[in-house]
Write a protein that binds this DNA or RNA. Sequence first.
DNA 1: CGGTGTCTTGAAGTCCGTCAATCCCCGTGG
DNA 2: CCACGGGGATTGACGGACTTCAAGACACCG
Lengths: 229, 229
Amino acid sequence: MNLVCATCPVRDRAACSVLDDNERENLARRGHHRTLEAGEVLFRAGEKVNSCATLTTGALKVTSIDADGQEHILALVHPAGFIGEFFQPFDDHEIVALTQSQVCLFNGPDIESAMDEYPALARALLRRAQEDLHASRSLLALAGKSDAQAQVAGLIMGFAQAASDSPCHPAQKFELPLSRADCANMLGLTIETVSRKITALEKMGAIVRTGKRGIELVDPAQLSDLAAG
Amino acid sequence: MNLVCATCPVRDRAACSVLDDNERENLARRGHHRTLEAGEVLFRAGEKVNSCATLTTGALKVTSIDADGQEHILALVHPAGFIGEFFQPFDDHEIVALTQSQVCLFNGPDIESAMDEYPALARALLRRAQEDLHASRSLLALAGKSDAQAQVAGLIMGFAQAASDSPCHPAQKFELPLSRADCANMLGLTIETVSRKITALEKMGAIVRTGKRGIELVDPAQLSDLAAG
DNA sequence: CGGTGTCTTGAAGTCCGTCAATCCCCGTGG
DNA sequence: CCACGGGGATTGACGGACTTCAAGACACCG
């Protein structure tokens, strides 16, 4: 499907938003849409990936498959996020849709030539890469904590921030974007431990659960304290 | 001290290597050298950092200080590595020298205007950022393993790769760049556990220790197996 | 020779992982 | 409508792995 940028939900936030309408139109002619169902794989591990993508709707996860077959979640991708590595195309990461998602796909060489043509695009991608790096390091700090309670509390706070409109205040009520299995996977814990810690958070009055995935923050300060602990 | 690129040990590998001699000379006029002693801090957490740097000799660590005062190592920086985030200058990371080190320091705005002037520089920094991202995710995968033996084995393999000249074969004999405390910090373990696991690796014949930090790989295949497990 | 810092080794305790049973929610089909 | 079944989530009991606490070994330096 051809790209129609005029109606793109991330046209003001994605990397391509630094281009003017004409430039964007030129780029759009070289890309196309793709819809992914939940669980569908965008880039498979071990394949030589020579394309890249911007996520417009939905959510993706970046995982690595260890030598022993264990999956590990390395990052989440939100709308306007960019996926693609130009310089080492043999990638050992796998990109999987968490929910039904839509991406703008481009061939690597097309984006590279577009960067030559429009230097602002390279700057925008640099910015995205640095943001991704920051997010990755935040996750590293979280996963490195020795206390499981702190990890789970921190993860919930992170999701609350991500679910919020404002960048400084967490959402008070939101849905976890991940299953327990995926939460456990991000933190290097087991499903059971995550479940137990969430239960503990509810028992001590920091949160209230609504349904499987729903979370309501009752005492964010307590949650932050636990995340620090 | 003014920069003298002609004798720079990373002149062929750093981000600025994409510039020609004249361009590099222009950039060099806006930067200066700084020497750091082991343990000295380059950028302190909580400060508004508005400068960036390329490491020419030595080694740095990137750490985050948690709310509870715990330090966590997020990344190591090797010569030719770049440090600096342009887009969110309030950084909660701290950059510390592991050994005596030398850096090329630049003001953020100077680098930004240089990127405008020389688009190749933005491309080069994008490449570095993506490499850093990849390294960060590799560390995340390592730190996320549930088995301490696998983590330590993987860390040693990683250091062996980094110490090697060739990118595909690990060095057979090398020095650990980090103290036990820093190793433990990277993996989210304790000093004692790291020490015990290294001892175990030696007892099972995978490695031999020489002095405090020296490692000799006796059975790299076994080490890789353990790292996978 | 004593002091300090780093590393190692040992013993006891705690937290998390493993295994297993159960529950809950939903969709399916009799 | 209710029974059945499957996937995800919760809960419990137990064992093992790592942490904690403490002591000792080793090198380096005054």
